[in-house]
Structures are given as structure tokens and as C-alpha cells.
Design a protein around this nucleic acid. Sequence first.
DNA 1: TTATTTGTATTATTATATATAATACAAAAG
DNA 2: CTTTTGTATTATATATAATAATACAAATAA
Lengths: 127, 127
Amino acid sequence: MIISLQLDSETPLYEQLRNQIVIGIATGELAAQEKLPTVRQLAEDLGINTMTVNKAYMLLKQEGYIVIDRRHGAKVSPRPPDNPEPSPQLEEQLRLLIAQATIQGVNQSRFQTLCSQIFANMTYRHP
Amino acid sequence: MIISLQLDSETPLYEQLRNQIVIGIATGELAAQEKLPTVRQLAEDLGINTMTVNKAYMLLKQEGYIVIDRRHGAKVSPRPPDNPEPSPQLEEQLRLLIAQATIQGVNQSRFQTLCSQIFANMTYRHP
DNA sequence: TTATTTGTATTATTATATATAATACAAAAG
DNA sequence: CTTTTGTATTATATATAATAATACAAATAA
């Protein structure tokens, strides 16, 4: 999986890394149960510090996206059961996003179409 | 307009303030051309520093949400023309949001319904 | 067994971001 | 001419981000 970090971004490196792994899981680029690189290996590949990668892994673990085992390293979590209700945080983020879209002049129809296109690339639950 | 800041949040105060004003504009709570409180007044009301409010106003100005005039203070920008294409930043944020929703087990149908409900509260372009 | 690899913890250091405080200035309104 | 406006400056304190250099426990591989 290709990971590209922007050193000049306002988004912290560990957060960029976390985000790209989350998207990688959702798109199916990283399959459930798939083993992630070791913190040392990934840090070396990306040219960043070990602890920065570790921070991203700890965050992903805390959020439930990956499982970490000392024997086998980090793995993508198995697919959880369907949960129709999104988390309050996700709902609030969506609310802010739609507010911005509305003000920018993107109407509901266009927004829904965009969502459909994005969903079409999420093969997470269709292996 | 009621603004509530969480001092213990990870989100900086100026960003919380910016977000709530954006939502206020989108929901119509803040009408186009409406005058915002002065930086000193809002800082006093919220019990925070003047420069923190100023930073939020500068950000909103830079993003085009408000217009600042030395004579009349800060005002909500007039409604821009319809723009079917969302900004790349917004699209990337939506992509990450949908990725998280997908992994959390929220399917497309439920997500679209949630979007519809949120859009129903955005009266920005229906005064 | 021994050596290596794994995640993880610790400590230190540097740089940047956040927030507050105390002023000060220019421009416009009253 | 005084007040109010946004804005700039300087200083200070705290928190976060990132790196560096180690070190440890647990498990794998030799």
C-alpha cells in the first residue's frame, strides 16, 4: 500500500498516517486480518521516527481499526457487525461538512451523488 | 446565537468558534449580511481572549464565510452563486468520513438518510 | 539455549501551536 | 475629538509534535 505524507501539511504526520490506513481498510486495499508493516519498517520506509508510527498505530488500535499482538504485530481488525447508527462524533463531523458544502453552493442532489461515487470505491464489506 | 465552547476539548477554541459560526450560517441562524459581534464583545461574552476570537474571524474571512470592514465590523458574506463542484478539501474530508462510517458498519442507505436529515436543517439557500 | 524481532516505555531535546495578557495603532463613526 | 473598530506587536506559559537514543518484556527463529 502506498502512503504519501506531506511534511508541510497542518495535519500531524501520525494523523495523516492514521487517515490513510483507515481509507486503505475501507477501500479494501488492506484486507481484514491483513498484517501491517512493523513500526520500525514503516518508519524507515516513510523516513520518519519510530514513535510517530507507533502513535498512529496506538490511535488506530484505540479506535478499534486494528488489533495489536506482540507475537504477530499489527493486523486489521475483523469486520464488525452492522451498526446502523453512526457515532455522535461522526454525525457531528458530517453536519459540519454538509454546512460547508451548503454555503459553498453544493446542493443536496450533487452531494448525494458524490457520496454514491465514494461509496462505490469502498469495497470493505464486499470481499 | 448561542455559542458553547469546550475548554477541555482537543479542538482549539478558535476552531470550535469557527465551526459553530459556519454551522450558524448554514442553518440560517446567522443570515447573509448579518453583523457579527465585535471581537471584544464576543471575547468578553465567551470569557476568552480577544486574539482568539480574532483568529477565528481571520480564518472565516480567509475562507470567504465572512467579510470584514473596518467601518462596519464583521458580516456574513452574501450568498455565492451555485457551485456544483465541492472543493478538493471537502471531497477528501467526505471520503475519510465515509471510510470511517463504512468500517463502523453504517451502510450507504443509512448514511444517505442521515445526510437528508441534516440537509433538511440547512436553510441557508431558502430564506 | 541463544539471538533476533516485536511492540512498548522512557527520557531528553527541539520546534511549533495555542491561549492569554498588555498595549498600541490606523481608520472610521459618533 | 473621543470612541469604537479591526489589527499588529511583544511577551509569557502551556501543550503538542517530532525526533533521537535507549531499554525492556515477550515471542519468534536460529
